[in-house]
Amino acid sequence: MNGIFEVRWHGRGGQGIVTASKILAIAAFNEGFVGVQSIPWIGAERRGAQIEAYNRISYAPILLHSQVYAPNAVIVVDQSILSENSSTTIRGLKKNGFLVLNAAHSNVLSSLRVPEGCSVYVVDATSICLELGLQVAGLEILAIPMLGAFAKATDLVSIKSLENAIKSFFEADSVKKNVDAILKAYWSTRKVHLKPEQYLSPIPPSKPVRIPEIHHWTDLPPVPTSTPSKGSIGKTGDWRTHKPVVDREKCSKCLFCWMYCPEAAINVDSDGFPEIDYDYCKGCGVCFNECPREAISMLVDEK
């Protein structure tokens, strides 16, 4: 390997990509690479939101400290991210690079476009986590098996180094589970064969942008403005595990629930009863806790 090998992880908050990227850096160091980095993406990390993490691996110390823009490998831990927007996910992937995916659906794979010479590897990390019970707070730690898949795809770190890194990272009682997940993934990762038309031809250099002359502020382009909308980040009802349900028999229409809802997800109907907007109610439970009549119950949400 020449120069710096750069990795970009894609996942959602809670799936362990920041931890896995740290483990990969330690493992690469164990393997003899002198320059290693693990970088979390400093964004507004919230459970369920898309996040990224990065690694750099090199035989020499690394002086570059930016985010990774042109990765040699992209690891996609959450299946839905690739189907949502595959071109953003693999943006900047270098030719002859690696794309390592968690159980991508066949229609996603067949519509994939990758730079010349790239190889695509797939592993069913979700099933591995479920089988081994590799979960924290109800979420599968998908990024751990992806380490095994990465090792198989790139041959950059050995299972032994990953195992040692895991040992230095986790309490003794959870080491085995994590190592098993890596091993299982290593042996079940397979290479996907793409059709010739799925390889992108080299991108021609872009034309220089002409900057308009500005003499007066009215020559400036319009400022982009956002439009106010409900669901500015989508249907947040999906975040809910429990659902508030109002019992109209008990309700006195005091509207405390409406007043205290942090989400403004409670409307008032023409009879004066509170009406919960399940498209956006996040299920925080504040209304349930504040109702003086105990007229609201939180029921398990079977969506």
Binding site: S229, K230, T236, P262, A265, Y280
Partner: peptide, 8 residues
């Protein structure tokens, strides 16, 4: 408006 990205 509801459906924003604040925590629960």
């Amino acid at each position: 408006l509801p459906g924003n990205s604040a925590c629960q």
